[in-house]
Design a protein around this nucleic acid. Structure first.
Lengths: 239, 239
DNA sequence: TATTCACATATTATCTGATAATATGATAAA
DNA sequence: TTTATCATATTATCAGATAATATGTGAATA
């Protein structure tokens, strides 16, 4: 039986048109190729460029508008908003930004926030976390250890560890910062697989402090973990 | 000349259908009336309910999806995502949440973050802010003083003041937190008009420290301003 | 009985073409 | 010079169609 022709490939993805248009325009905006100063193509032009119907273009525009990147108005057309309005904590925007910014700059910006957020989160987790939440943190740590032992990727477990701490801090807005951490860990683990095992003991110290309900120790253990990671990454990036 | 009939008012806004559908569904999701456990109405049903075409419904769905509230898939339909995925820092989501949560709870959550972010931002502003940026902070403060003198609403100036400090800290992710502050100030100024003049001197102390490039003083002045505001609000809410 | 496979079906994804609303700029009037 | 009127360009909304795809059903099989 003749294998089905795999893709139409007129020129690019035809199956996920919407996602493709969103990502393509989003990236162009973050790069600055489309800016508030420049005129934005109108729906019809975008449709022609992407080979998409107006529906798809309009849905993509609404998606980008919801992220604060653009706004659209009858007769006026579409325009790029000032970066001030961009939802930088949106996972997509975060990734687009990461892929276009100088790595060192992005990373220092990111860690500045993590150092602000996570020690306090660890502190609160030690105070407010209930048994189940602390168990979740412990489980994530166990998964990290197991990954280190079997030398498999522990990035998911690492993320779970940090997210579980945010969750145990009982502040929904804090939990939101998980996106930041996700990107940070993703970069870290892509740059260096081994970083992982090195930092395991520091994670353990955070966990132990939380279990012991020692909030100050939890905070400083987390601060220590992050500073060391940051320094480690800086060395890596520089070389 | 007969005045034009002002609105079709079949039942609700007909002019901004898209925005209406987004707000309506968004609110229902935040309230929990639509949850991950429950089945979500399909596009056709939503269209019937809102008296809107499928295009409008689909655009609204994409807008909510971009905020992490829902996801949609062929054949499976639409489903509400876990609150973990919600973009809580999105201005709309923030407002929906504010209007449905117990005020005291929302407020304490909010201030926990502000106390985390803003003192450090003030500290960084004192170190990194350039002349123009510091001038912007000063201008905002002048506008606040003027508003206090003329007893007009200074909420815009207040917001400008805090945003200008975030901007002077030179970290785009930090600047993002401006949305939080906007909601916080909005609530504060709605609860009490006079709070404004009372806190003017504390704002001044922050400004002065930044001008003097005294980072530690700027940080503690900001911390002081926020704690006092929080306590003031707590008293107001309790009564 | 349990597992695998083929297939009908329900729902979103995309396309097409039309009408309505509205902000802008041009034109005319004051 | 300012104000009022109007044509126009662009998005907003509607309507109806076809395509793609995940799910469950039932048949075939071990």
């Amino acid at each position: 039986m003749a294998q089905q022709i795999p893709a139409p490939l007129g020129r690019g993805p035809k199956r996920n048109l919407f996602a493709h248009v969103v990502a393509s325009l989003g990236l162009r905006i973050i790069k600055g190729e489309l800016s508030p100063a420049l005129p934005f193509p109108k729906e019809a032009d975008l449709g022609a460029e992407f080979g998409a119907s107006r529906s798809v273009i309009r849905e993509a525009v609404k998606s980008l508008a919801a992220r604060g990147l653009i706004a659209s108005q009858t007769r006026t057309g579409i325009r790029v908003l000032e970066p001030l309005n961009w939802n930088l904590l949106d996972a997509e925007v975060l990734n687009w930004r990461y892929s276009t910014m100088p790595q060192a700059e992005f990373y220092s910006e990111l860690f500045e926030i993590r150092l602000l957020i996570e020690p306090e989160a660890a502190r609160l987790a030690a105070i407010r976390g209930n048994a189940a939440e602390i168990a979740t943190i412990a489980q994530a740590f166990a998964a990290m250890s197991e990954a280190a032992r079997t030398e498999t990727s522990g990035v998911a477990a690492d993320l779970s560890f940090h997210r579980a701490i945010l969750a145990a801090a009982h502040n929904a807005l804090l939990l939101q910062m998980g996106n930041l951490i996700a990107v940070g860990l993703d970069i870290a683990h892509r740059l260096s697989r081994e970083s992982f095992a090195v930092f395991l003991p520091m994670h353990q110290r955070v966990l132990d402090a939380i279990i012991a309900r020692d909030s100050d120790a939890a905070g400083s253990a987390m601060r220590h973990l992050l500073s060391e990671t940051q320094e480690f990454m800086n060395r890596l990036i520089r070389t």
